[in-house]
Design a protein around this nucleic acid. Structure first.
Length: 242
DNA sequence: TAGGCCATCTGGTCCT
DNA sequence: AGGACCAGATGGCCTA
């Protein structure tokens, strides 16, 4: 079964051009890994990173799959509350080495405000920063379970690409699950012809006949059509050329 | 060098 | 009132 772009990205027609361009611009290795991830069961569940548990907000939070060394410039020396009233313990994420929020604050309107207002503003900034970091951690967690090449030589997926890829991956998994259920129903039915079905052979706890809504049948001469109501791509009879 | 991506700041709005 | 959420603005880094 060949996998084209339409298979990989069922909703690709709706994808923003920029995101599609980014997905297409992935390296060959990445694209290959993506393809395999979608078409086989080689899904890296075991490699789920505990991003949520990570609260350092260091640049290494996403370092697992950073291709280019995003920390190239080193961590930011100071950013906002790091030197302000707010004593948040976290390190800033990627930030330019020369970035100096304090300087901006001094030059900006905040410096002209009363101390209470300034303090409040800094506190709000810190909260917002934290919120965005949490959001980014969640995105990192999402990236870590999406099947694409998590190798150091591959650049990290952008936010938009991560979300779009995740959406399409979910759709693909749902399709695969349905196929599996149909297959199990078919197998269970075969078993029932010769004897009782051992409990261990009914992995989904389904009844022997899975209630699929019947569509127009391409007549499979075998049991697919008879029992599942729909020809299955996993059924060798359905896939056989006449 | 332009464009993409990102982190941060900021003010506004909504909710508890 | 305080916090969460959101969107716009700004500026830095990276890549084609």
């Amino acid at each position: 079964m060949s996998v084209g772009r339409g298979d990989l990205f069922p909703g690709s027609a709706e994808l923003p051009e920029k995101a599609m361009a980014e997905l297409k611009s992935l390296s060959g290795d990445t694209y290959l890994a993506l393809t395999q991830g979608y078409t086989t069961a080689s899904f890296p569940y075991g490699s789920v990173r505990g991003a949520e548990a990570h609260r350092g907000y260091s640049t290494s939070a996403a370092g697992d799959f950073h291709g280019a060394p995003l920390t190239k410039g080193g961590t930011a020396e100071s950013s906002g509350e790091q030197s302000g009233e707010e004593e948040d313990a976290f390190e800033p994420r990627k930030r330019s080495p020369g970035f100096d929020t304090d300087a901006k604050l001094k030059a900006g309107t905040l410096a002209k405000k009363p101390k209470e207002q300034r303090s409040l503003r800094l506190s709000i900034n810190a909260r917002e920063r934290r919120r965005m970091h949490d959001l980014n951690d969640a995105l990192d967690g999402l990236r870590s379970v999406i099947p694409y090449a998590h190798s150091p030589s591959v650049r990290k997926l952008s936010k938009i690409a991560t979300l779009l890829l995740a959406k399409n991956y979910i759709l693909m998994q749902a399709q695969a699950l349905e196929e599996m259920r149909r297959l199990v129903a078919y197998l269970n039915q075969g078993q029932s012809l010769t004897g009782p079905i051992p409990a261990a052979l009914t992995p989904f706890g389904q009844a022997a006949v899975y209630p699929f809504s019947g569509t127009a049948l391409a007549a499979c001469p075998e049991k697919c059509a008879a029992f599942s109501g729909t020809p299955s791509a996993l059924c060798k009879h359905c896939n056989e050329k006449p």
